[in-house]
Amino acid sequence: MSGKENLEDIKYLRMSFNERIQHFLLFSSFIVLILTGFGLKFPEAFWVKWIVFIIGENAFEARGIVHRIAAIVMIAASVYHVYYILFVPRGKQLLKDFLPRKQDLLDFKDSILYLIGKSDIKPKLGRFSYIEKMEYWAVVWGTVIMSATGFILWFENTFLKIVGTEGMEVSTVIHYYEAILASLAILVWHFYFIFVNPDVYPMNKAWIKGTLTKEQMEHEHPLELEEILKAELEEINKKNDITENEAELNNEEAASVKEAETDLKKEESAEIEANKPDLNENKN
C-alpha cells in the first residue's frame, strides 16, 4: 500500500449533503440572477441577444419573472441558512468557524509575506481561511443589500411613496454596482480557488462530492487536519484504554495516522528546504 494511495483514499467531509444543497440553491439562483440582471442592463450585448433570440418575443417579460423567481429562491435559501447556523448543530459549528478572529489577521499577514516571498513559512490555515471567511461574509452582506434594494425596485409603486424617486434611483445604483462587485468577486476570487488553483486543478469537487482528499487538506486546511487527526488519536487512545483487543484491531489505523503525520512533517521540512535555494537565488 503506497503513501499516495493512502492520501487519496482518505476523505474528509467538507460539505454535508444539506450544505451542498444550500450551495447549489445559492449558486444556481446567483447565476440566473446575474444573467437576468445584466441582461436588463446590457440589452445589446451579444449573449443577451442570443438568449432573447432563443426565448423569443416575450424574452423581456420572462427575464423579469425569472429574475424574481431566482431572487425568491436565493432569499429562501438564505433564510434557511440563518436557521441552519442558529439551530442545527453542524450549522452552529459552521457559524463558529466562520466568525472572524484575531488569528485571521495574523494569517493574512503571514500569508502575504509568504506569497511575496518575504517569508518561507506558509501559514497553517484552519477549517476556514481568511479568504473563505471574507467570501462568506461578503455573500451575507451582498444578499442583504441586493434583497433590500431588489424589493424596493420590485414593488416600485409602493416604495415610490416611501422613498421617492431619489430613493428609487439610489436603490437602482446600489443594486447595479453591488451586482458587479459580487459577480467579479465570485469570478476572480472564488473561481480561482475552485478551478484555477494548482492544488485542486481542474476543479475542487467538494461542492459535488462533499469531501476533500488528504492531500487537499494538507494544502489548504492543515490546521484543521491536524485537529482532526489529534481528535482521532485521542479517540483511539481512549479506545485502547478500554479494550486491548480493539486496540490491536485499530493498530493499523493508528499506524496510518502516524504515517500521515510524519509525511506531513517531512513535507513541510522539504518545502522549507526547497524554498531556501529559491531565496538564495533571489538574493543573488
Binding site: E178, V188, Y192, N197
Partner: peptide, 23 residues
C-alpha cells in the same frame, strides 16, 4: 462603489497571481 470594486478586485487579482506563482 467604483472605488470598492476597483480596490477589492485588484487586490483579489494580485492575491491570485501571487498565490499561483508561489504554488
Amino acid at each position: 462603489y467604483m472605488f470598492m470594486i476597483f480596490g477589492l478586485i485588484s487586490f483579489m487579482l494580485m492575491h491570485n497571481i501571487l498565490d499561483l506563482r508561489r504554488k
